[in-house]
Design a protein around this nucleic acid. Sequence first.
RNA 1: GUGGGCGUAGCUCAGGUGGUUAGAGCGUCAGGUUGUGGCCCUGAAGGCCGGGGGUUCAAGUCCCCUCGCUCACCCCA
Length: 423
Amino acid sequence: MPEFSTSPGMRDIVSPESARWRRFVDSFELIVGVAGYELVIPPLLEDIGVFNRLGEATDVVTKEMYDFVDKGERHVALRPEQTASICRSFVQHRPTTPFKAWYSGPNFRYEKPQRGRYRQFDQVGVEVLGSLDPYVDIEVVQLGWSFLASLGLSRVELAINSLGEPDDRARYVAALNAYFLERTNELSPESQQTLTRNPLRVLDSKRSEDAAVIADAPLINSFWSDTAAAHFSTVCDGLTAVGVPYTIDLKLVRGLDYYRGTTFEFRGGTLDSAQNALGGGGRYDGLVADLGGPETPGVGFAIGLERTLLACDDEGVFPAADQSADVFVVDVCGGSVALEICTELRSLGIRTERSWDDRSMKSQMKSANRSGARFAVIIGEDEDQSDTAVIRDLRSDAEQVSVSRSNLAPTLKSRLSSLQGAV
RNA sequence: GUGGGCGUAGCUCAGGUGGUUAGAGCGUCAGGUUGUGGCCCUGAAGGCCGGGGGUUCAAGUCCCCUCGCUCACCCCA
């Protein structure tokens, strides 16, 4: 056993998964980029006050924060999410509104690790600051939806709800609290505990004992103001208009306290995981002001990489890319010819590998085979003397051919591109 | 934070009631004569049996502790 390995809940992302991660973020950038979102890269570390605004009653703040006092006596924390950082950045730099940002990167929460849940986890997301227009909500939800669809996912469900205006939400919470208190003895001990902290979150309980009580609980829609109801209705109509399928889930409440108005969640189609929330978001119209900025509405979402990739695995889509070489150079004359050929081919964009340590031809051919390369270029004594090279197709039984060294690169280039054309 | 399962070669795993040099498959490396891979054959390297303590003449095997992984709860991405 090695002396060191990754800390709990943290892991190395290694090949071929690592390349898949890069591609994931690239795909996201492609979709939000054409929609005019600009990249913001906030620091991993912030003053803990930035994150305290996520909610004094939330686990994320109360027990999952990676926080410490630095050498300058500042109380800082590794970010548990990026929305608050983006808002802080907005307050600090005051870009013109509407401000449309996207981000990607790791976040940290000190939780017990589990399938699809790590202490360091990556998210991609967008935030739009400065507009109350319901069409912003629509655009944001649509972006998340089309991104997931672009990965090939077809069994994702979009749940959407509105928490109403702050007053609506407050009245609803009060009503909910009264209702649950009345039937508190029917609730599971865990939910009774949750009730004291945040009645909304009791609705989230997945325990069967709670199901009956939750089923009869009052619903948010009867507390919506006219403004909130109209906003929500516009959002729903807009989604329908652009062909984004959704389900209204009046019991959808999200974990962070800053949400108000529209909230939504993308859920993976596979039921066997409790971690089926691939991503989610909503409006947080008070957050910028809470962080000391002007009254500025906001809406956004975050999508978890790990979970979304798990969903991709379940659906058999967005596979890890093929990383095999195009050409493998076998040189049994010391290796200097391989150096020259690799340099030339690579400069032409041909993925070229070779072996080292002066191994036998047989052993180098084995490596060539394993590399997945389409062609082996073989340099033996004869080729070295005559300034030629042998090209051998590793995936067909065609005769190998000998070409002059000056014709090697052009020949490979054209054979590779004709193969690509065939596919 | 709470509970269940599991920790043996790089990987996947065998190792009845404790008993001599801990095994297999895959992978890796080297060979199977004269410059050529994939199939097959042979051989080699590679393990403080997660760590610590205990019981015993003797522990991978039993007991305790600890660390880690995993699944569920909690919560969330």
